[in-house]
Design a protein around this nucleic acid. Structure first.
Lengths: 109, 109
DNA sequence: TGCCATGTTTCCATTTTCGGCAACTATTCA
DNA sequence: TGAATAGTTGCCGAAAATGGAAACATGGCA
């Protein structure tokens, strides 16, 4: 177990906007401006989040003319997210009585 | 996709010590003092990290006399962590030429 | 070449995280 | 009850993360 590396990977996914971006990228490749608009953040912010994901080895980028296309490079990561999400939702429901659908979602929906 | 909730869960796992704790807990339940000693951190630090993991729904705790036993409540998370780790290691190796075994590990080994 | 669209990087202020220490709580046992 | 063991919480300063704005870099096109 590479604790440092694993923690670094989780840190890359530990932000609502970055989860949102990964979710979008699981459907198809997107350019930065599209993703920024979808996420409702400045392009510089989207660019920085995408850099983090790329640095962590989760996404890849390719230039397409004036724009840069980002795509998912570790599809299994998303499966991890949904599986873990399901588990945690179940645990929260049964142990705390929290309704998981009542959470605030902000921009990153 | 619950971006906020998912990000919160990943944030709980986004620290070397917490990854280390989850890895330990995947083997068997441990009390705080044992985990603190294993991780090489103060018991207050271990306690705080474990609180975060519990709050995220990843671990559970039960009192056993004077000590409190923590156990994994979302085993699937660890399995998929290693899967994702493998994917990321492969991607890093092929795209950046980085040797994944050369990383510093600190206390959280 | 000059202009425009797309991204990245830098700077800065604010917020959050982190670890160690001390104080406080809870349980066991003499 | 008093002491010892095990955990938790509050406080503090240091370090890291975040977002917005501006400057800078790249590629396409008239």
């Amino acid at each position: 177990m590479h604790c440092e590396l694993t923690a670094h990977m989780f840190k890359a996914m530990a932000h609502p906007v970055r989860v949102f971006l990964l979710d979008k990228l699981s459907v198809r490749p997107w350019c930065v401006c599209e993703l920024a608009a979808e996420a409702g953040v400045d392009k510089s912010v989207a660019s920085k989040h995408l850099s983090m994901l790329r640095e962590a080895g989760l996404v890849e980028s390719t230039r397409r003319g004036t724009q840069i296309e980002y795509s998912l490079s570790a599809p299994c990561v998303l499966e991890l997210a949904s599986c873990a999400e399901g588990t945690v939702l179940t645990n929260r429901k049964k142990s705390l009585g929290i309704n998981p659908d009542s959470e605030a979602q902000g921009n990153a929906r």
